[in-house]
């Protein structure tokens, strides 16, 4: 296969995964959340238990008018959804499903993924600033503060795993993984999960889009397809963080019968993690802004540092 064709195939495959997996998670959220609340959820679209609900939603969003507020900073306002969405696409390309199945096998893919996801927040900031709406701006500021607080424990938790594996490559990290890590890296896994949910601005950390206070935060003024892009970015973020959790802490493609079907294990583990993320949304109320900061700086950062020290000591002791 010539390099150009290979690049094309890989790009199309990543794009397809980027468009399909978030829809799967979104549909799962529709149904799981509904049943957790004693409801049925969508039942009509597509015939069987509303499986095509999100496709129908997409068609609806595409038909809606694309409104740009008169006072908005037009170029920034119109560019923001792309800035929010594309980093997740870039990051998803670097996450391996199995040693051979990865969009772009970067040598330091752990760093690449973390850096790319951190860019995504810029889209929210741009959207909030350019909307010329005080609620949007407040939401964007909250999002920025939240990102600043939670990026640190997230990076520290990943650093601990990288230290344990002795590599910055996600493929090598999952390759070095052994079941003993489940206990050894447990505090780090907890920190990573909480910080990831906070970075995605998912409940219980959804103050930036707190509908009762800020309407819909930075996304208040958006309509139509641009709004849909922000929603897609949220669910793509869930997919990305869940897969990352599966690769870093759950051993990715390792499992029984993982010869050629290792990628299924990664997807399955990632799916379980995303169900957990959905479950947290249904079960828990939203934190207050100060509680959020307190949790990050007094809870997660010390815990992540402790994990880092534990990993370092163990690696040095056994080396």
């Amino acid at each position: 296969m010539s390099p150009a064709v290979e690049v094309l195939v890989r790009t199309v495959a990543v794009l397809a995964a980027f468009l399909v997996l978030p829809l799967l998670v979104g549909q799962t959220e529709h149904k799981v959340m509904a049943h957790m609340q004693g409801r049925l959820g969508p039942m009509y679209a597509g015939g069987f238990h509303g499986w095509a609900q999100l496709v129908a939603d997409g068609v609806k969003f595409a038909q809606k008018e694309d409104v740009t507020p008169a006072a908005a900073d037009r170029p920034v306002f119109r560019l923001a959804p792309a800035v929010g969405l594309v980093p997740y696409l870039v990051a998803l390309a670097a996450v391996p499903l199995s040693p051979g199945l990865v969009g772009a096998d970067a040598p330091a893919s752990a760093v690449l993924v973390l850096a790319a996801t951190a860019v995504g927040i810029l889209g929210t900031l741009m959207a909030g600033w350019a909307s010329a709406n005080k609620y949007s701006l407040l939401g964007a500021m909250r999002a920025a503060a939240q990102l600043l607080s939670y990026e640190l424990p997230l990076v520290l938790a990943v650093a601990s795993v990288c230290l344990a594996a002795g590599s910055l490559s996600l493929t090598a990290i999952a390759g070095a993984w052994s079941p003993w890590w489940l206990l050894w890296q447990l505090p780090g896994a907890f920190v990573f999960l909480v910080a990831a949910v906070a970075e995605l601005q998912r409940p219980p950390f959804d103050m930036p889009v707190a509908d009762s206070e800020l309407v819909f935060g930075a996304y208040t003024e958006y309509t139509g397809l641009r709004f849909a892009f922000f929603l897609l970015a949220e669910y793509a973020g869930i997919v990305l963080m869940s897969l990352l959790f599966a690769v870093l802490y759950l051993g990715g493609w390792k499992g029984p019968l993982s010869g050629d079907l290792g990628w299924l294990w990664t997807l399955l583990k990632g799916f379980v993690v995303s169900v957990l993320v959905i479950w947290m949304r249904v079960a828990w109320p939203r934190l207050r802004e100060d509680q959020l900061q307190r949790l990050a700086w007094l809870g997660l950062v010390p815990l992540a540092l402790l994990q880092l020290a534990l990993t370092g000591v163990w690696v040095v002791a056994t080396a």
Partner: peptide
């Protein structure tokens, strides 16, 4: 929420 998930729904179709 897990208990509710395991129970039949209340929705009347």
């Amino acid at each position: 929420t897990a208990r509710t998930l395991a129970r039949p729904t209340h929705t009347s179709e």
